[in-house]
Design a binder for these strands. Structure first.
Lengths: 231, 231
DNA sequence: GGTCACAGGATATGATCAAATTTTGACGTG
DNA sequence: CACGTCAAAATTTGATCATATCCTGTGACC
C-alpha cells in the first residue's frame, strides 16, 4: 500500500474534508465579495490554477458556479471576467434587495435571541473600528457579516441564498465605492436596526434595512454615473 | 477560410456553435423545468454521460451550474439529487416570485408592442389547447413560455435571471401537481393579464401576475401538505 | 489592408484514485 | 432452524489530474 500521502497543497488546513472545487469556490467568492477583484478584470482558468494551487477541473467547476451566481460573466468568446455593473443593473438589484432583505430582517426580528443581538453589537463595533481607521477590507467583511448574521435568524434559506447571490453581483463595485469615498463617508442604519431589534419591532427593523440597502446602492449608482460621465 | 466544418456530431443542427457543457446544461434545465425529473430522484454523473452521450467534464460543469441555480441539491455525501420542496420552501418562493414577477409584469407592460401581444395570445391559445387535451408537458412548456415572453419585455435581465432561477426550484414539483390535479383544474389569470396589456394598465397586469403566481404556488403547497399528511 | 501562421488559453477526454453504497456472508440469538 | 445484526469485500459513483484538441485573437509578412 502506498503510505506516502499526496502532496498537500493547502498549508495548515484543519478541515480538509471539503472537496477541492468547493474550497476553490469559497475562496473565489470571498475574493469577489471582499474586493480582491476589480470590475472588468479578466479571470483565466490557468491563472487561477496557479494562484490557488488547484487543478483545472475544480477551478472550472467553481467558475461555472460563480457565473451562474452572476459573480462572473462569460463573454461570448470564451473568456471570463468580473462584471461591470451598469446603472440599470444597480437599479434592479436595489429593487430586489430592498424587497428580500427587508423581509429577511422582519422575519429575523421575530426569531432573535439575546445572544445573537449581543454578537450583532460586537460585529457592529468591529465595523465602526474598521471604518475609523480606513480599513476597507475590514469594513466590507464586517458589513457583510452584520447582514449575514441577521439573515441567518430568518429561517429562510432560499431567500438568504438569493440575497447572497445579489451581494456577489455588487461586491466588486462596492470596493470601487470605498476607493472613491473612503470608509469615513459610508453611512449606514445599523444603529436603527439594533434599536428595533431590542424593541422587537419587526417593522422598524425592516424599514431600517430597506433604507440601509437603498443608501448603499445609491452610492454605487453614484460612482457608476460619475464614471460614465468621465468617459 | 476553412470551409469544411468540423465533424458535426449532432445531426442537422444549424447552431452548432454552443460548447458541450452549454448544451448539456440546456437539456438538463429543460428536463427539470418540464417534468422529466421527479423530486427526490438521484442524479448521477455517469448516468448522464451515457444518456446524453457527453463526456464527464461537461456534465460535471452543467451539474454545478444547476446546483447553483437551486435546481439540484448537493447532499453532503457528494451525491446529487432533485430537491424535494417543503411547505416552508414554497412559502419563500411565493414571496419572492410575487414581488419580482409582478414588477417584471409592470415593466413589461410599459414596453409592450402589438406584435408581442399577438404572440402572447398565440402562446395562450396553445396553452389552452394543451390543457383541454391533458397534455402535461405542453402545459408546462407553454405556461413557461407565456411568462418568459412577458418578462423578456421588461428590459431587466437581472430580475429575469432571478425569476428563472426560482422556476427551476419548483419545476419538478409542478409536475407532481399536474399528476395530482390533472391539467383541467389548473386555473390561471392569463386572460386578465391580456386584458391589462391591451389597456396598457401596468398595475392591473402586475396584480394579475401576482395572483397567478400565488394561485400556482398554493397548488404546490397543497400537494406537499397532502403528501406530508399521508406520511 | 488583407492573409496567414503562431501563441495563449479554453474545452473535452480518459485514466486513475478515493469515497460511499450495496452486497454478501458469518455469527450469535431467540 | 430462522432471523437479525454486523462487518468486510465488491461495486458503483465521484473527484482529480494530465494530456490532447480546438478556438480566438494577435502580429508578422506580403
Amino acid at each position: 500500500m502506498n503510505l506516502i500521502k499526496k502532496s498537500a497543497i493547502a498549508p495548515a488546513d484543519p478541515g480538509q474534508k471539503a472537496p477541492a472545487h468547493e474550497i476553490v469556490y469559497q475562496r473565489l467568492k470571498a475574493q469577489i465579495l471582499f474586493g480582491d477583484m476589480a470590475p472588468g478584470q479578466a479571470v483565466t482558468i490557468q491563472g487561477l490554477t496557479e494562484s490557488l494551487g488547484a487543478g483545472m477541473t475544480p477551478v472550472r467547476e467553481a467558475i461555472r458556479r460563480l457565473i451562474s451566481d452572476g459573480a462572473l460573466t462569460f463573454q461570448g468568446n470564451r473568456r471570463v471576467k468580473v462584471p461591470e455593473m451598469t446603472v440599470a443593473d444597480v437599479e434592479q438589484v436595489t429593487f430586489v434587495r430592498t424587497s428580500i432583505e427587508a423581509e429577511l430582517a422582519r422575519r429575523a426580528t421575530k426569531n432573535m435571541d439575546a445572544d445573537t443581538i449581543q454578537s450583532l453589537e460586537n460585529i457592529d463595533s468591529r465595523l465602526d473600528a474598521a471604518i475609523s481607521v480606513g480599513d476597507v477590507e475590514g469594513y466590507l467583511k464586517h458589513n457583510y457579516d452584520f447582514h449575514a448574521a441577521i439573515y441567518a435568524q430568518a429561517n429562510a434559506p432560499i431567500m438568504v441564498d438569493l440575497a447572497e447571490r445579489l451581494w456577489l453581483r455588487f461586491g466588486p463595485s462596492l470596493r470601487v465605492v470605498c476607493g472613491r469615498f473612503g470608509t469615513q463617508n459610508l453611512p449606514d442604519l445599523h444603529k436603527e436596526m439594533m434599536d428595533g431589534l431590542h424593541r422587537k419591532d419587526a417593522e422598524a427593523v425592516a424599514m431600517a434595512m430597506a433604507q440601509d440597502v437603498e443608501q448603499g446602492m445609491n452610492l454605487v449608482a453614484a460612482v457608476l454615473a460619475e464614471q460614465d460621465a468621465a468617459r
